[in-house]
């Protein structure tokens, strides 16, 4: 690990201002992804700004009947919150489908959104990777791509967003609240938060330099039945090959978002209109224009069949 300076932030605005003016600064909260990457020297911050002591660890009800989740609410606490379990069960299900108990105790709501890809070529400093080192190339294209993206890819990157929680957040139309280095606050719709790789795959999201997430808000509950089905290589503690987050109403209408398919949580609102017609009709629209590789083409029928299982359970 490269040496770094360490400062405990005193307020969200101070943290953002400090991050903007300090070269090579990064925020650290749970640290479960960042420290892993720092040990591999994939991340080499010169300065860590510890935001753990900021009072951003509460879950509050909003005036319009939703929930405001502090950036530092740990995954375990968010999944266990009674209101989340009752009204946003898809979020609890997504969180407990990810990582391990130890990691969920440490990982935060904001940090989870910022989780970096698990593409094996991103993790191997001996391989070219445009995400790790812009302009160096992409060894995943033409390499072992079984886990990687099937849609929204570019000639520069076929990495996936690895998380589960964000798939549910995208389904629920969450909003990311931030504070910028000048102290101004901003709200970013979750749909606009994660990026497709394009020709700048080193940028995972639309945060600006020094901008700090302070909360994630959920609109009022959707009702309906909530599902998060995750298909992976072992029964627990593995990243998704494919995951399906869904809320299905009694009349068969609903919402669906997919994990493991793209560089961001994959939700196509136009495809949701086809949900009452079934999984095949929905998947056809959701994955129109997909560009799978030989290794990961299986993800397309797998996503459709996982959705079919969800819809069958919703009817039952």
């Amino acid at each position: 690990m490269k040496a770094f300076h360490y400062t405990r932030a005193s307020s969200p605005a101070d943290a953002a201002a400090l991050a903007a003016k300090t070269p090579g600064a990064k925020f650290i909260a749970g640290g479960t992804n960042l420290l892993d990457l720092m040990k591999l020297e994939i991340e080499t911050p010169a300065h860590l700004i510890d935001v753990n002591k900021l009072a951003l660890d509460r879950i509050e009800e909003t005036p319009d009947g939703g929930l405001r989740i502090g950036a530092l609410v740990r995954n375990t606490d968010l999944a266990a919150d009674k209101r989340v379990r009752r009204d946003y069960a898809v979020l609890t299900r997504a969180i407990v489908a990810g990582a391990s108990g130890q990691l969920r105790n440490k990982a935060t709501t904001a940090g989870n959104l910022l989780q970096r890809t698990r593409c094996p070529y991103f993790y191997d400093p001996n391989q070219p990777c445009n995400k790790r080192k812009p302009g160096s190339g992409c060894a995943a294209i033409g390499g072992f791509s079984r886990q990687l993206a099937v849609i929204g890819t570019s000639k520069a990157c076929i990495a996936t967003y690895p998380g589960d929680m964000a798939i549910a957040m995208r389904l629920l139309d969450a909003t990311v609240e931030t504070v910028k280095p000048d102290g101004a606050t901003r709200k970013i719709a979750i749909a606009d938060f994660h990026r497709l790789p394009g020709d700048t795959p080193h940028l995972d999201n639309t945060l600006q330099t020094g901008e700090l997430i302070t909360a994630v808000t959920l609109p009022k509950p959707l009702g309906g039945k909530h599902f998060y089905h995750k298909v992976r290589d072992r029964a627990s503690y593995a990243f998704a090959l494919v995951s399906v987050a869904a809320v299905v109403q009694k009349d068969g209408t609903g919402r669906v978002a997919f994990g493991g398919m793209a560089h961001k949580p994959w939700r196509v609102e136009a495809a949701e209109a086809a949900l009452p017609k079934g999984a095949a009709a929905t998947a056809r629209i959701a994955f129109a224009g997909a560009t799978p590789t030989h290794d990961n083409a299986f993800k397309l029928p797998l996503a459709e069949r996982t959705l079919a299982a969800v819809l069958s359970e919703a009817r039952g």
């Binding site: 420290l35 860590l48 440490k106």
Partner: peptide
């Protein structure tokens, strides 16, 4: 790297991977 759990300890009563925490 937080994958095996051999370093699990409890901090303020909650289990964590002590290898992934400064």
């Amino acid at each position: 790297h937080g994958q095996c759990g051999a370093c699990t300890v409890m901090v303020n009563g909650r289990r964590i991977n002590s290898c992934l925490s400064l």
